[in-house]
């Protein structure tokens, strides 16, 4: 399957990636190559096959509902590019 430019733009937007006009052509052709590789899957009939989500044949464990830690929030916030008064700051969010 080949990708067209508008699809590349749509996917880039969904993934929040900026792809410049000059890059778009190259990105498009490489992804098209990769999709060709992927499309080899379509040569096999898998109608009756159950999908395998996980190699482990195990079940989810449950955790006791307990608060088990002290949060060093100042240390955590010191990792942020921009934070003030305990809040992480980002360019204005519009609803």
């Amino acid at each position: 399957m080949a990708l067209d430019k508008s699809e590349v733009e749509k996917i880039a937007h969904l993934a929040r990636l900026h792809i410049s006009r000059t890059e778009a052509e190259g990105v498009m052709s490489r992804i098209t190559d990769i999709l060709a590789l992927i499309d080899q899957m379509q040569t096999v009939n898998t109608d009756d096959i159950e999908p395998l989500a996980h190699p482990l044949d195990a079940l989810q464990r449950l955790r006791a509902d307990e608060v088990t830690e002290v949060i060093h929030y100042d240390d955590l916030q010191s990792l942020a590019p921009e934070a003030r008064d305990g809040l992480y700051l980002v360019p204005k969010v519009i609803e």
Binding site: R16, L17, H18, L76, L79, A80, P81, E82, Y88, V90, P91, K92, V93, I94
Partner: peptide
């Protein structure tokens, strides 16, 4: 770019920051 790691310089708006 919100809680840790790299953030671009002077984002114009939220979308610009993400992208």
């Amino acid at each position: 770019g919100v809680r840790y790691g790299y953030r671009c310089e002077d984002p114009a708006d939220l979308e610009d920051m993400y992208k």
